[in-house]
Simulated assay, not measured.
Amino acid sequence: MATATKAKKKQVKKSQTDKQNSLAEEQSSQPMKLTADNYYSHETSWQYMSVSLFKDFEKCEARALAKLKEDWKPASSSVPLLVGNYVHSYFESAKSHQDFIEENKKELITKPTKNDPNGHLRAEFKSANSMIQTLQADDMFNYFYAPGDKEVIVTGEIDGYLWKGKIDSLVLDKGYFCDLKTVDDIHERHFNTDVAVPNFIYDREYDLQMAVYQELIKQTFGVFCKPYIFAVSKQTPPDHDAFKFEGMTDKYAMQDDIRKIKELQPHFWKVMTGEVAPISCGKCDYCRETKTLSSFTNASEIEV
């Protein structure tokens, strides 16, 4: 029985290695044409780097690779992501919003009970409706965000490596684009960032996202566009605000972001193609789940 189990594990490992080798070969071939249907697929992520994938590798290479190979899935709740997508889909189009509701009805609606046979919208998405109403009622948001083309796919190269992006609202004729963010609290102080301004934009590297999107829009359409972020909070009542990237601190941060991408991405691609082993952070959910002890650590050397 033990021998059969070992043989099965070897077979699974070989299958995973073969899959990685096959996908690595795809990277060097003609890249797939991106569409709304395949944009978020793992296949396109093996050919195009994205901001979310880059940030995953920054946090923990082992976790990012396991997710990319579909060997592991995080057990954390998907509700925060769904709340953001719920709000985004509303401002994309009525059809997109209705399609999103139909596709995610199980997560959006409570389970039927005797007193509530049809179920009802979960509290998180009632809050999302309040966020939508807050933005809808704001003239500045409607003036800048509403006219743009929604969910526009852009591609390009950064230092010879393919990248992809999806723009929430693109207004090419006026030279700007908007990104919509849902956050817990716009004014909350963040401690996970080493920049001088510890707010949600720099903590979540939205400045890096804006720098990448600006470059990809320029390569795709030949137009240099200013980035704007509209943020709405999950508080009751929701807060909301609009942000630009025109100060010297913002400009330097975006320049540093592109430099960081150029510095780190060659290593990340080598991890993806199996040329080098991924580095584990040792602290994330994936590392905790797969951790095995091999030695003692001095009590005075515990990482915090």
Rank of each mutant, 00 (worst) to 15 (best):
K6D: 08
S15E: 14
Q30C: 09
Q30D: 10
S45F: 08
W46P: 03
S52G: 00
L53I: 12
E58R: 09
L65F: 10
L68C: 06
K73F: 11
A75W: 14
L82A: 01
L82C: 00
G84A: 04
S89Q: 06
F100R: 04
E103S: 13
N115E: 15
F125L: 10
A128P: 06
Q133L: 13
T134S: 12
A146W: 09
V154L: 02
G156C: 08
G156K: 04
E157G: 02
E157Y: 14
I158V: 04
G165E: 03
D168Q: 03
V171R: 07
I186N: 05
E188G: 09
N192Q: 08
V195R: 15
N199K: 05
F200C: 12
D203P: 08
R204E: 11
I217V: 02
T220V: 03
C225K: 02
P227Y: 03
P227M: 15
Y228S: 06
K244Y: 15
E246C: 04
I258Y: 05
K260E: 15
E263P: 07
L264D: 08
Q265P: 03
H267R: 15
F268H: 00
W269M: 00
W269E: 11
T273K: 06
G274F: 00
Y286P: 01
R288W: 07
T292P: 04
T292F: 09
S294C: 09
S295H: 12
E301N: 14
I302H: 11
